[in-house]
Write a protein that binds this DNA or RNA. Structure first.
Length: 627
RNA sequence: CGGGAUGUAGCGCAGUUUGGUAGCGCACUACGUUCGGGACGUAGGGGUCGCAGGUUCAAAUCCUGUCAUCCCGACCA
């Protein structure tokens, strides 16, 4: 490609709306242009990067035995009603009506379509297993799109769905996909970590995410990992063992329960100051609302935070949120900072909406006129608290020296309603080996789920098994954010001057820069190299613009071409300069040696074994992260 | 959805307080000089000041509404 013809509108300054590095650089270097909030044009350079990533994904998916197909973006609501997600998915799902007034959606994912397709096309166990994938645009009307391509409303995703006759076969395929993913990201030049994750709205039990670790602001997920055993999980899922803390308040409060004045203590910090005690001696009670209608309480130690995804899963909610001030008054007869059940009576009962989940209910029998009763979940951190502090809904007062009832029935009731609800912290202990847990930020570029029969049951998708009976497909699904992977690569590989693409996903590998386009010697030599590169299958640009050398260098660096060949003063002697974008190494070589050198660089960057060796140091065994 | 901010040339911004002929830098066009790290000179082109109402002799500027974009929040009793 001649630079004079390349459609890549570059900007000298960062656009006003771009916050994160990948968004800024991709915009400045002429790769993308925003069309609406969270919606972008992929300009020619970006499109080439996408094609590169897609090609790697296709090769590895095909290699793993999956088959590519293409499903529609526009889908009938019927399928979503059938799966139950029409009611559950919320505003992220883009819904509209066609001219016949039929409800439609723009697919945020394709479980419904693929399940229906499999049901129509697969009738016998003899046709299984099968793994089908596509690379397709996806639509999610994010509450708040941001970070450029990292969280858009329209994005490109590879999504694969596998169908099996058994959980065991699903697990086999799951491992095959995990290995394919490892190869894909490695081949893109990205070091990823496979971490345990929450399965969220998509359902199913076991799932993992592939994260590009970033350290910086741009990563939007917390990743907890253990260097000694390889345990890794995202913030929504991570478990941890708490380091020692003061959990017996005898020395401060004695062993007798009493009510003390705590004026204006509506948060943990002021309460610890007021009562002169560590936060770990507080049993914090959080009033949540399940699915907008059902209030319940979560008990957690005062120095910890609740992980809402864990809470949501524990109560089997579609959505939870903290109660607002009015609801605190209505459901707990209290105010912020003073919610608690000291003084309420404990009952073994399941309230509507919590069946099979929560069997502990506290009743305020001393406030009969209000009929207050709340289901309660405990985080495991509060069980061994002794002589601790808790509120009793009396504003301006707390109870100290409080203890859980000691009788066997009460203890059992407390224990059966105890879950892991806390958010892990860096510095806690690893749940598998007790070493110190680390935390970093990460960008999720891929995920794999064991769906089981969630969708096949909901949509009655079956095959006939060997024994002649109808059975539901056992399913798995596997996603890779193509556009997000490209953006993550920019987050990972850039410097002050611009992008520094890994060779395998660069839009062009080499930028040939004749310093002076008017100099016939330089131009001839440059053009010859450019032609040779193309003939050898190495994608290149030649900067034929009538610009000063500085401008050409700057643009080449901004756009991030991995290798620059400068044809300058020494062209007369047949000597060229080869500079690597990443690392900045410079070599002067006779013209004849340039192509072999570049080919060796490309070979180095695309050879799987060599890539694997390069990343080995920082890469934990995938097996260590398995659940 | 709540709070905050911003919409003026392709991009980045000033001008708005105090109403009076629409500006600067970059980019773009032409010519000349320059030519290995975002050159310089001269001469140009390009904007119904987000949109719609209103006030006024007169509105980028004041008022009302609306749309768009960005940031923060929508989680820690």
């Amino acid at each position: 490609m001649r630079m004079s013809q390349l459609f890549a509108p570059t900007l000298r300054e960062n656009p006003h709306e771009a916050e994160v590095v990948s968004h800024q650089l991709l915009t400045r270097a002429g790769y993308i242009r925003q069309i609406a909030r969270g919606i972008y044009n992929y300009l020619p350079l970006m499109q080439r990067v996408m094609k590169k990533v897609e090609a790697i994904v296709r090769e590895e998916m095909d290699r793993a035995g999956a088959q590519e197909l293409l499903m529609p973006i526009m889908q009938p609501a019927d399928l979503w009603i059938e799966s139950g997600r029409w009611a559950v998915y919320g505003k992220e799902l883009i819904r509209f009506k066609d001219r016949h007034d039929r409800d439609c959606v723009l697919g945020p994912t394709h479980e419904e379509v693929i399940t229906s397709t499999a049901n129509n096309g697969i009738h016998s166990y003899k046709q299984l297993p099968v793994n089908l994938y596509q690379i397709q645009n996806k639509y999610r009307d994010e509450v708040r799109p941001r970070f450029g391509l990292l969280r858009g409303r329209e994005f490109i995703m590879k999504d694969a769905y596998s169908f099996h006759t058994s959980q065991a076969d699903l697990e086999r395929e799951y491992d095959v996909m995990a290995e394919a993913y490892r190869r894909i990201f490695l081949r893109c030049g990205l070091d990823t970590r496979m971490v345990q994750s929450d399965s969220g709205a998509i359902g199913g039990a076991v799932s993992h995410e592939f994260m590009v670790l970033t350290q910086t602001h741009s990563g939007e997920d917390d990743v907890y990992y253990c260097d000694s055993c390889g345990y890794a999980a995202n913030g929504e899922r991570a478990e941890s063992i708490l380091p020692d803390a003061t959990v017996d308040g005898q020395a401060i409060f004695g062993t007798t329960e009493q009510v003390v004045d705590t004026p204006d203590c509506d948060d943990i910090e002021s309460l610890t100051k007021c009562l002169k005690m560590p936060a770990s001696l507080i049993c914090k009670a959080l009033l949540y609302i399940k699915d907008e209608t059902m209030p319940f309480l979560v008990f957690i130690r005062g120095d910890l935070e609740a992980e809402e995804i864990k809470v949501q899963n524990a109560v089997a909610a579609n959505h939870i949120r903290l109660a607002d001030a009015d609801e605190v008054a209505e459901f707990a007869h209290s105010a912020k900072g003073y919610v608690g059940v000291a003084g309420w009576r404990m009952c073994n009962e399941e309230l509507p909406g919590f069946e099979g989940r929560v069997s502990l209910v506290y009743r305020a029998e001393h406030l009969k006129e209000y009929h207050l009763q709340l289901p309660v979940l405990l985080d495991s951190s509060v069980l061994n608290l002794k002589n601790f502090a808790m509120a009793n809904n009396e504003i301006g007062k707390h109870v100290v020296g409080y203890n859980w009832p000691h009788d066997r029935a009460s203890q059992e009731l407390l224990e059966t309603n105890t879950f892991d609800l806390k958010r892990a912290r860096a510095g806690d202990q690893c749940p598998t080996c007790l070493a110190e847990l680390n935390m970093t930020r990460g960008i999720e570029v891929g995920n794999i789920f064991q769906l089981g029969t969630k969708y096949s049951e909901a949509m009655s998708a079956t095959y006939t098994d060997e024994d002649g009976t109808e059975k539901h497909f056992v399913m798995g699904c596997y996603g890779i954010g193509i556009s997000r992977t490209a953006a993550a690569a920019v987050e990972r590989y850039h410097d002050q001057d611009g992008i520094a693409w890994p060779i395998p996903i660069a839009p062009y590998v080499v930028s040939v820069v004749p310093v002076n386009a008017d100099d016939q010697t330089q131009w001839t030599l440059a053009k010859q190299l450019y032609d040779d590169l193309q003939a050898a299958g190495v994608e290149a640009v030649i900067d034929d613009r009538d610009e000063r050398a500085g401008v050409k260098f700057k643009d080449s660096e901004l756009m991030g071409f991995p290798i620059r060949v400068t044809v300058g003063k020494k062209a007369a002697d047949g000597v060229l300069e080869v500079k690597l974008r990443e690392g900045g190494d410079v070599k002067e070589l006779p013209a004849a040696e340039v192509l072999p050198y570049i080919r060796s660089l490309v070979e180095e960057a695309t050879d799987f074994a060599k890539l694997e060796a390069r990343f080995k140091a920082g890469q934990p065994a995938a097996a260590g992260a398995a659940s």
